[in-house]
Write a protein that binds this DNA or RNA. Structure first.
Length: 270
DNA sequence: AAGGCATCCAACCGCTCTCGA
DNA sequence: ATCGAGAGCGGTTGGATGCCT
């Protein structure tokens, strides 16, 4: 029993692709476009599984792929996105034009993990591995804590307007800014981004906390423009002195709606 | 020079999700 | 509401290559 195979394995090639196979695939997709991967191999005259063709095209043959090493900016962006999204490689790749999920995943496992570990940061939790010592290194004195939680939300009703925004009906993506109360009380200091996964009701339930989320991208309680914190480009905001930042904010960047919930649909970049 | 070890990354595998019948 | 096919995703594997002793 078990699942039916995705293709007739007995008559398919496996392993590395030859130049001829690549050429056939490129020619076919140029002529007919992407899609119908299951029937593509036969139509293109390839002895390959459709999945294999799709992977080869997406990860290697696509003309818009960026080749070469990752830049320092890309490194930092991947780290920050991973801290927000976890191992959602396709979502992360969607924010890095010309990079594929597979490429980023490989790069993460081979380079960035090590890089974070050498900084004393746990690549899974993005928290320091050895307590205050490492935290002191990663926390700048001018940076106010930004606590972001992607939360499973047991209290969210299915008919709530926010329910539709929940990816796979599991996460609301409610985001809180500022340290948790217990952390404030205990004097806990976290790095730039506290990315602990935890559960909390949506913003409209916790009226006290998310007022700042209604500002359309400007993070009032945090003193740092999110765009600046990502280091995406020079930002002329003066959020440190309390004035407005005219640039896109955290929510817009990640596809958040004005209610402060993460809408995964807008994160997809097809 | 050669063998062992580490690293990189393309490709595979199995699972989940989506959509149409 | 259910089911099956197709597509997509993330984890893992294994061959190629480079480095070290």
């Amino acid at each position: 029993m078990g699942r039916s195979p995705c293709c007739e394995k007995a008559h398919t090639n496996k392993g590395a692709w030859t130049k001829e196979e690549d050429d056939r695939l490129i020619a076919y997709i140029k002529a007919h476009g992407e899609g119908c991967w299951r029937s593509l191999p036969k139509a293109a005259g390839l002895l390959r599984c459709g999945k294999s063709c799709r992977l080869r095209w997406i990860n290697y043959l696509r003309p818009d792929l960026k080749r070469g090493n990752f830049t320092e900016e890309e490194d930092e962006l991947i780290i920050k996105l991973h801290s927000l999204l976890g191992n959602k490689w396709s979502l992360i790749a969607g924010r890095l034009p010309g990079r594929t999920d597979n490429e980023i995943k490989n790069y993460w496992n081979t380079h960035i993990k090590r890089k974070l570990l050498s900084r004393g940061i746990d690549p899974v939790t993005h928290r320091s591995l050895n307590g205050a010592e490492a935290e002191a290194e990663t926390t700048t004195p001018t940076t106010t804590t930004t606590s972001i939680s992607f939360v499973a939300n047991p209290k969210l009703e299915p008919d709530s307007p926010d329910h539709n925004l929940m990816p796979n009906r599991l996460f609301s993506g409610a985001i809180e800014f500022g340290p948790k109360s217990e952390e404030r009380n205990s004097g806990y200091r976290c790095p730039d981004l506290n990315l602990e996964l935890r559960i909390s009701p949506p913003s409209h339930i916790h009226q006290k906390q998310p007022e700042q989320l209604k500002t359309g991208g400007r993070i009032v309680n945090s003193t740092t423009c999110f765009k600046c914190s990502f280091g995406l480009q020079n930002c002329d905001c003066n959020t440190f002195d309390g004035s407005e930042c005219s640039n896109i904010g955290f929510h817009d960047f990640l596809g958040l709606r004005s209610n402060g919930h993460l809408d995964y649909r807008t994160l997809e970049m097809k």
